[in-house]
Design a protein around this nucleic acid. Structure first.
Lengths: 225, 225
DNA sequence: ATTACTAGTAGACGAGTAA
DNA sequence: TTTACTCGTCTACTAGTAA
């Protein structure tokens, strides 16, 4: 009985990674099966087969022109690569905390409004050990640090349950304990959310006043995992 | 004719990575071939064979106790994993610059002494377009950012040739153009060097005065690749 | 319980070649 | 030139089993 492989075969990941290094994430790249074969240290025939397999698994899409095929990695393929990337990060970067660098910004008020709901506040107190100041500090994450959020989200955090109030429904949010300039705080993120370039920080104190922060000031947020 | 594989087989890297995630980099870990088989989604027999192969390649060492083997990844194995990690970093982190975070520190004077040698100075001017101030600014790198130096070193940089003067020999150093608080500068590292937790920065100006820096101040050094 | 041998088989690979 | 088929070989796997 052959093993059932749920995970991406490591041979696929190798080919996909090399394609990514050629720039196939951002754009279509022209690469012949012979060239790919050289890169993967295998024959033209095997490289051609590998491409067909990757197409079959929907990790890449192809534009098979008359002379030269053009290949691009799909979002699904990028997702797979990120999984492996995050494993390496866990190996080499993680201790038990992670630091996100960013810049203080004026929030759109959105987050603050949600967070101040009575239904959340009680849970925050229980989970974090402090009653948050009524409002959030917004920090725009440095572009290079945005992917660190993937690692944070892959850790447990404190689940804060959603609720319904006045015919509005509020979803689950997750709080991760953190420190900003040595003050205890927490970052809060919606359980279901997409790409984010800003984190919202809650704290017992009014951080802007306590730490004398203004828009544009640089801060490091050290998150416990 | 079978392909000659110089690179680590991707099947080895997969097993090695999973062992690393179990903590086999820092210490010996107890893991049976059956457990490893479950993790790698293969049979106990195949996992056992994989272990023998990794031993043969000297990626791991083993302490085969009476009841349970204990496995640890060798420096050579860690090196292989880092290569893959750096490929992923190139895919997901690199644009054309990298930012290293750190803290201003008092140098031991060492670097400054070397850098000020006439033999280096002329080359700096040619390679960087400015005559460095006679001295370096030392920045202690945040622990989590130390591995970023691997990536910097894997890029070209400006080679500054060594020379001999007064019976002392000065080795090659590599300069990487950078910016600190928006001022043009460069970091300089010896061509042959080991682990470093401090970078030395040269600049046209006296950075401590110009940027009003004191020991302990936090700075971001943005290095061009 | 371990680890790891042998044997048999499925699948990965390259050579030849068509389109 | 491309891409990708068929086919033979050889590797890599699992099952059975020994130690």
């Amino acid at each position: 009985m052959p093993a059932i492989r749920n995970r991406m075969g490591s041979k696929y990941s190798f080919a996909l990674r090399k394609l990514a290094l050629l720039g196939a994430i951002d754009d279509y790249i022209a690469v012949s099966s012979r060239e790919l074969g050289n890169i993967l240290e295998m024959s033209q025939q095997s490289a051609s087969k590998r491409i067909l397999e990757l197409l079959d698994e929907k990790y890449i899409v192809r534009d098979l022109g008359a002379r030269r095929q053009r290949i691009r990695i799909t979002p699904k393929g990028v997702e797979e690569l990120k999984k492996e990337y995050n494993e390496y990060r866990r190996i080499f970067e993680l201790t038990d905390q992670i630091t996100i660098h960013g810049t203080v910004a004026s929030g759109m008020g959105e987050g603050g409004y949600y967070i101040c709901q009575e239904g959340y506040m009680k849970q925050f107190e229980e989970a974090l050990g402090f009653t948050p100041f009524q409002g959030t500090l917004n920090v725009v994450i440095d572009p290079e640090d945005i992917s660190k959020l993937d690692i944070v989200r892959s850790s447990a955090g404190c689940m804060i349950n959603g609720f319904t109030c006045d015919e509005r429904s509020f979803g689950n949010v997750i709080a991760y304990k953190a420190k900003i300039r040595n003050k205890d705080c927490a970052i809060v993120v919606p359980e279901r959310s997409h790409y984010m370039d800003t984190i919202e920080i809650i704290c017992q104190f009014h951080l802007r006043h306590t730490l004398n922060l203004e828009d544009g000031d640089r801060v490091d947020v050290r998150i416990s995992l």
